[in-house]
């Protein structure tokens, strides 16, 4: 489900549709359905299951009800909240939407990804059940910066974004529990189908008891407390 969708984000719909397997997509935007019909018509049939008009302009409660009763938001696998431009403070509207999502899902929202305009507004989403906050400006900057430093790294990023390289979470094999990260790296060379993979990190209890991602830890780090392994799969090109 994509919230605050406008025809400007048609590319996002295409990107979602290009994913394998293509998910069912519901769009919620501020404009009336008639106004976006022409834009949606450009997409191949079946890309978008439903378009709803809705925003936080009517209040959080009303929006939460709309999410729960009409849009079927609690059943969504993942939600993307886009910035709503032209309606006052953009990120504030996104925060209201996240509050409505939380209420609609009775405190157990699905995987919510919020794209913010102002990176300084990130902390405002704390406690709203948002999994990831995305700042497009940072992505642009990071990609270009890596391209400046190392073209190989830049192409690695593109492969990750393109889905050719994937990150998978694997359970820790019992025989590796007593070993170190280096030993695990040397042992984990292929996946079940015999395709080469690379162990790049692990999950282990961090501050507050929740699992934290440890990327490229020290080779001597023991695996006894690791909850999962982070494995890079796929081919770059």
């Amino acid at each position: 489900m994509v919230i605050h969708w406008t025809p400007e984000a048609l590319g996002l719909v295409r990107a979602i549709a290009a994913a394998e397997p293509a998910p069912e997509l519901t769009l919620i935007g501020p404009a009336p359905a008639d106004a976006v019909a022409a834009a949606l018509a450009e997409l191949p049939a079946g890309h978008v299951q439903k378009y709803w008009q809705g925003s936080a302009s009517g209040g959080v409660e009303a929006l939460a009800r709309f999410f729960a009763d009409t849009a079927g938001l609690p059943a969504a696998d993942a939600i993307i909240v886009l910035p709503l431009r032209g309606h006052g403070e953009t990120d504030a509207f996104s925060r209201l939407v996240c509050t409505a999502i939380l209420r609609a899902c009775k405190g157990k929202p699905p995987h919510v990804v919020v794209a913010v305009e102002d990176p300084e507004a990130t902390h405002e989403f704390e406690g709203l059940g948002v999994a990831t906050i995305f700042y497009p400006g940072f992505l642009r900057a990071a990609l270009l910066a890596h391209a400046c430093v190392d073209l190989g790294a830049f192409r690695f990023m593109l492969a990750l974004l393109g889905g050719r390289l994937r990150v998978e979470t694997w359970p820790v094999p019992p025989e590796l529990r007593a070993g170190t990260f280096r030993e695990a790296c040397l042992n984990v060379e292929v996946d079940r189908r015999g395709r080469p993979v690379t162990l790049i990190g692990l999950f282990a209890p961090g501050e507050g008891g929740s699992d934290a991602m440890l990327l490229s830890p020290s080779p001597a780090r023991p695996l006894r407390d690791a909850s999962a392994l982070l494995v890079l799969t796929g081919e770059a090109e």
């Binding site: 996002l12 979602i16 290009a18 993307i80 990831t132 995305f134 990750l160 991602m213 982070l230």
Partner: peptide, 17 residues
Amino acid sequence: AHRWLVMACRDRAFAEL
């Protein structure tokens, strides 16, 4: 950026990585 959002929705470890 759109691809990033899609990947972040599909793979929960992706965004952090």
